[in-house]
Design a binder for these strands. Structure first.
Length: 164
DNA sequence: AAGAAGATTCGCT
DNA sequence: GCGAATCTTCTTA
């Protein structure tokens, strides 16, 4: 399966809304591995979330992947998601993880080498990138750390947050 | 040991 | 738009 990442949120060092804020624990240890690893966790009893770690080893920080534009393996994603609506396959962080069948087994995987999950290079023409506040958090609410491709239909969240 | 909150989704109105 | 589902982790006693 393959696709384009079209929406992300940053959780930088020292951010009170980030899982690394209170230091390393059994759950968030992958966040401290260094740049380019997967941090996968389970939340709300229903959803897995995928982050890409984003700092040097020992510093906890990551980027949440919130939406994905499916390009290849769409039939497989439809099976995992139990829907055939293309726009709903990976629109939202929990859906993205479900579509790619991502769970705790992929926690800590190196995304920059060959393996079950990896990051490729940019595909196609990238439109302008907009910013907004992050979705679903209650700390550091005002920071403009959500990023999305303007106009892309595969983006999650309220429409008002995806205009610019 | 118990309780609350959480980087959400789905179904129903 | 609203509330339930569902479970892990951290906080507080």
């Amino acid at each position: 399966m393959r696709g384009r990442i079209v929406e992300t949120e940053a959780y930088p060092p020292g951010d009170a809304s980030g899982h690394a804020f209170r230091g390393q624990t059994a759950r968030n240890r992958s966040l401290f591995l260094g740049t380019g690893f997967a941090y996968v966790y389970f939340i709300y009893g229903t959803s897995y979330m995928l982050n890409v770690t984003a700092e040097e080893p020992g510093i906890g920080a990551g980027v949440l992947l919130r939406a994905f534009e499916p390009l290849e393996g769409i039939e497989q994603m439809e099976r995992y998601r139990k829907t055939s609506k293309l726009l709903d396959l990976a629109r939202g962080p929990g859906r993205l993880a479900t579509a790619l069948q991502i769970d705790q087994r992929l926690d800590g995987v190196d995304l920059c080498t060959d393996g079950p999950l990896w990051l490729g290079t940019s595909v196609g023409n990238t439109a302008l990138v907009g910013t907004s506040v992050r979705i679903g958090i209650s700390q550091e609410v005002g920071r403009l750390l959500r990023f999305f491709e303007i106009g892309n239909p595969f983006i999650s969240g309220p429409k008002a947050l995806s205009r610019k």
